[in-house]
Simulated scan of single mutants.
Amino acid sequence: MPSSGTAKFNDVEADLLVAVQDLAPGWAAPAARQLSHFGEHGLGWYVLAGLGVAANLRGGDTERARIGRRRWAAVGVSAFTAHATSVVVKRIFRRHRPTDPRITVGVGTPSRLSFPSSHSTSTTAFLVAVARITGTPLPLLGAPVMMASRMVLGVHYPTDTLAGAAIGAATAGAVTEIERRTR
């Protein structure tokens, strides 16, 4: 049974979630569902990382192509490792998804566990890793989009998405640094 402090915190987060859903334009929920399907278990990110590796196959056995393949493989490893970490953390914390009757749930989920958001975790890991290898922060703009989509769909509290993003960013930082140091 949650403590009264935990219950009050969940009430505040539920209020925030209701506000996000109330402010979302009509197109947001359908777009969020598409993002949800793309990011399920990180699969869309793994495919994009694989395409990055494949694009560097055209360079043959040049140093540049080898580094490109390693970097894109690290992007995929970042997303996978972040996702796996989120699954373990979910099983430790065992926080249930939002159940407030004011919240509209717009997509099915593979589990009832909410903290952290695995979509936010793998997405942020992928995008941070891409930003590091491309040298531009532009990919990072996608992380808050995925985070907001999970709230628009009513399947995560705000802290679920924030924690997921933090885990994803830390994972990508570690994996890309390991790739760089072992090149």
Results as ranks from 00 to 15, higher is better:
Gly68Ser: 05
Arg64Asn: 00
Gly39Arg: 01
Gly60Val: 12
Ala65Leu: 03
Arg58Ser: 14
Ala55His: 10
Leu48Ser: 03
Leu57Gly: 05
Leu51Thr: 00
Val53Phe: 14
Ala65Tyr: 00
Asn56Cys: 09
Gly59His: 06
Gly52Pro: 04
Gly42Tyr: 03
Gly59Lys: 05
Tyr46Cys: 04
Tyr46Val: 07
Leu48Gln: 04
Trp45Cys: 04
Arg64Ile: 00
Ile67Gly: 00
Glu63Tyr: 08
Thr62Arg: 04
Thr62Gly: 07
Gly50Lys: 08
Leu51Val: 05
Arg64Ser: 00
Gly59Tyr: 08
Gly42Ile: 05
Arg58Tyr: 13
Glu63Cys: 01
Gly60Ser: 09
Asn56Ile: 02
Ala49Glu: 02
Thr62Tyr: 03
Arg66Cys: 01
Arg58Glu: 15
Glu63Asp: 13
Gly59Ala: 08
Glu63His: 12
Ala65Glu: 01
Gly59Ser: 10
Gly52Ala: 10
Trp45Met: 09
Ala49Gln: 03
Asn56His: 15
Ala49Pro: 05
Val53Thr: 06
Gly68Asn: 03
Arg66Trp: 05
Ala55Asp: 14
Leu43Asp: 13
Gly44Lys: 10
Asp61Thr: 14
Leu48Ala: 13
Glu40Leu: 08
Glu40Met: 05
Glu40Thr: 11
Ile67Val: 10
Gly42Lys: 01
Ala55Cys: 11
Ala49Trp: 03
Gly52Tyr: 03
Gly44Phe: 09
Arg58Lys: 06
Gly59Met: 07
Gly68Gln: 03
Gly44Glu: 09
Glu40Ser: 11
Trp45Gln: 09
Asn56Gln: 11
Leu57Arg: 05
Gly42Gln: 08
Gly42Cys: 08
Gly52Arg: 03
Asp61Leu: 12
Thr62Lys: 06
Leu57Met: 14
Gly42Val: 13
His41Pro: 00
Glu63Phe: 12
Gly42Leu: 04
Ala65Pro: 01
Gly59Leu: 08
Ile67Arg: 15
Ala54Gly: 15
Gly50Trp: 10
Val53Ser: 09
Glu63Lys: 13
Gly52Trp: 02
Asn56Ser: 10
Gly52Lys: 05
Gly42Asp: 07
Tyr46Arg: 07
Gly42Met: 06
Gly42Asn: 02
Leu48His: 02
Leu57Val: 15
Gly52Val: 02
Glu63Arg: 14
Leu43Thr: 10
Arg64Pro: 01
Gly39Tyr: 00
Gly39Asp: 02
Gly44Val: 13
Arg64Val: 06
Ala49Val: 10
Gly68Glu: 00
Gly44Asn: 10
Val53Trp: 11
Thr62Asn: 00
